[in-house]
């Protein structure tokens, strides 16, 4: 039998094919061909994901400058980290930034998706493409463009404000404005992506529900708030969870737009990990940071999941 055949019967002529006769090894042996064909993924995953994950855990208990000897550090990296104002400030920045842009962005995504989903809109494909376009733009290019637009002295935004008779805004030069500017960039870049997720969710809601509500005399806003939003809840939850993770993983956007300033107001954990590794050559400390930050994200995601699904039971 050269052909693979899913079977529960014992292998034919074990004496010829060889291999272990009992236990889990036998199962592996029996599925050796399919396993071989799926193995490239697992090999690559082990090299590029599992190994780094465990190596950085090991690293977090050492002091290392990238090359040369690793000095065991015990828990020193972790104990130092808990008193590190700059690291916790970057975590706090992520939380603040999350509340600055995610609620608005998610709400806008649901509204825009509902409009795009409606039957009355013409050129649907075009609108969807336009909404999604920013997400395809290189973030580095977008970041630099935003920087030019938001420059306090010569940026287009403040020039426009001037024409309108408004006073200029210190977009990137003030702690809170810098966070808001970063939030604007995030909304610009990620609104389309979230809208597409919501659209996919909307398409799973049976049209009968909406029609029935309309027959019962519900207004459009009632349909939106009482039917669309509750039925979309799992999708919204999914999108918000992605946004939590995305916000904590932010790097390129603040790195280009604000460089983390002013006064570290927009510095994110990944920026701290990056500079600890590549500017300060504290690989062990940076690895400890990654782990604390990873655990925090997991906890946040679980808490958020529990909070949102609580009402369902």
């Amino acid at each position: 039998m050269s052909q693979f055949r899913p079977t529960t019967s014992p292998p034919v002529t074990p004496g010829v094919t060889g291999g272990p006769r009992r236990g889990p090894l036998r199962v592996l042996w029996r599925h050796r061909w399919p396993l071989l064909f799926v193995s490239p993924f697992f090999v690559l995953f082990a090299i590029f994901a599992l190994y780094p994950i465990f190596f950085s855990l090991y690293l977090s208990f050492h002091e290392w400058r990238g090359i040369g000897p690793m000095r065991p550090a015990g828990l020193a990296n972790y104990t130092r980290l808990f008193g590190d104002r700059i690291f916790w400030n970057s975590m706090l920045n992520s939380v603040i930034l999350f509340f600055i842009y995610v609620p608005i962005m998610t709400f806008m995504a649901v509204v825009i998706a509902t409009v795009l989903h409606g039957k009355f809109l013409k050129l649907q494909g075009m609108w969807r493409a336009i909404i999604f376009m920013p997400h395809l733009t290189s973030m580095v290019a977008a970041g630099f463009t935003f920087r030019l637009i938001l420059d306090t002295h010569s940026g287009f935004a403040n020039q426009a404000f001037q024409w309108l008779g408004l006073s200029p805004v210190p977009w990137l030069d003030d702690v809170w404005w810098a966070r808001i500017s970063l939030g604007l960039l995030m909304i610009w870049a990620w609104l389309g992506y979230n809208t597409i997720i919501m659209l996919a969710g909307l398409q799973t809601i049976p049209t009968e529900v909406n029609e029935a509500a309309a027959v019962d005399g519900a207004t459009r806003s009632q349909v939106f708030w009482r039917i669309t939003v509750p039925l979309l809840k799992p999708v919204i939850l999914f999108a918000v969870t992605l946004s939590i993770i995305g916000t904590f993983q932010l790097f390129t956007e603040p790195y280009i737009l604000t460089g983390g300033g002013p006064m570290r107001a927009t510095e994110t954990p990944v920026m701290q990990i990056f500079s600890s590794t590549f500017a300060n050559l504290r690989f062990g400390y940076a690895a400890a940071m990654s782990y604390v930050y990873f655990v925090t994200i997991v906890v946040l995601a679980i808490v958020q999941f529990k909070l949102v699904t609580r009402g369902d039971r």
């Binding site: 300033g261 002013p262 006064m263 570290r264 500079s275 500017a279 300060n280």
Partner: peptide, 17 residues
């Protein structure tokens, strides 16, 4: 140097504002 410059710059910013 890079770390010291970074830490000092933040404090100069705080002083300047």
């Amino acid at each position: 140097y890079q770390e010291m410059n970074n830490l000092m710059a933040e404090q100069i910013q705080r002083f300047a504002v």
